[in-house]
């Protein structure tokens, strides 16, 4: 990629305000509907059910009246790692997952994946899910599936794509109109739009005109497991220190927010 193209390259990402998140799960539902995510009759076992977007419940471990709760939505973090070597992309033996230098999105090529699950072992966020079963839709529901997203078969890995099909659709429209650039609101993920609290903001982290550009610079912003060097594109914001501290592993003497790996 030339220096000029580099300048133009997008780094799509999110900033999630954890102080706004109520844990309602609308983002999870929207994601499943948007992306034809298969489900089972019994979804209580979270270890083998697919949730591209998953809301974790965090507690500060204190007793009443100091007890506090935080809900943390976790999509794929779309790690850039060092120079595009995200934990999962570099290990995939069949080049079935790719880091796009144009968008910063980590893609999953379903027809290429042969289900070795090495990427799942590599991902510390558990953002990757295996199709343990073939998808079975309740009668009639197959007619309601999104035509823009392919359904996945048994035996392969899938994950959040930042609703990449929406990016493609927006780009198609822009091209038809003779444009090469998208406005901020032209490409938004389903979870972003579904959040009733407006906790999720999505956009190009490289673009000073986008809201995420400013939001990520907040002193209260942090990324999950930042010190591992995963270099993620999902930022979280919270005014509560214990929440920021829960975003990474800290040794007892270390100060919150001062241990991130350099990039």
């Amino acid at each position: 990629m030339s220096a000029k193209e580099q300048k133009k390259a997008k780094r799509f990402g999110m900033v999630i305000d954890l102080d706004k998140c109520t844990g309602c799960g609308a983002c999870m539902v929207a994601c499943m509907a948007e992306n034809n995510v298969p489900f089972k009759k019994d979804e209580s076992n979270k270890l083998d059910s697919i949730t591209w977007m998953r809301v974790f419940k965090l507690t500060n471990g204190k007793e009443y009246p100091d007890a506090d709760v935080c809900y943390l939505p976790r999509p794929c973090q779309h790690c850039e790692g060092h120079d595009g070597h995200s934990p999962c992309v570099s290990v995939c033996p069949a080049t079935a997952t790719d880091y796009s230098r144009e968008t910063g999105i980590v893609s999953q090529i379903y027809t290429r994946c042969f289900g070795c699950r090495y990427c799942m072992a590599a991902c510390p966020y558990h953002a990757r899910y295996f199709n343990w079963w073939d998808p079975v839709w309740p009668k009639g529901m197959e007619k309601m599936l999104s035509p823009d997203v392919s359904v996945r078969m048994r035996g392969i890995v899938e994950k959040c794509s930042f609703c990449f099909h929406r990016y493609q659709r927006a780009m198609d429209k822009a091209h038809l109109e003779g444009r090469r650039e998208l406005a901020e609101n032209e490409y938004q993920t389903a979870c972003t739009q579904a959040c009733p609290a407006g906790a999720i903001t999505f956009g190009d982290l490289n673009n000073p005109g986008h809201a995420v550009y400013k939001l990520k610079q907040s002193p209260n912003a942090f990324r999950l497991l930042e010190r591992l060097g995963t270099n993620t594109k999902v930022y979280y914001v919270s005014e509560r220190e214990w929440v920021r501290r829960a975003g990474d592993n800290y040794l007892a003497h270390e100060k919150t927010g001062q241990v991130a790996a350099a990039h």
């Binding site: 070597h85 570099s90 290990v91 995939c92 033996p93 069949a94 080049t95 079935a96 290429r112 994946c113 042969f114 289900g115 070795c116 699950r117 090495y118 295996f130 199709n131 078969m153 048994r154 035996g155 392969i156 890995v157």
Partner: peptide, 23 residues
């Protein structure tokens, strides 16, 4: 037996990612 799509096992050779230890 371990791979989810055994019929695609040959992808590891055909579409090899030389940076992967598994390759």
């Amino acid at each position: 037996i371990d791979i989810g799509q055994p019929l695609r096992g040959w992808f590891i050779f055909w579409h090899a990612n030389v940076h992967s230890m598994l390759t």
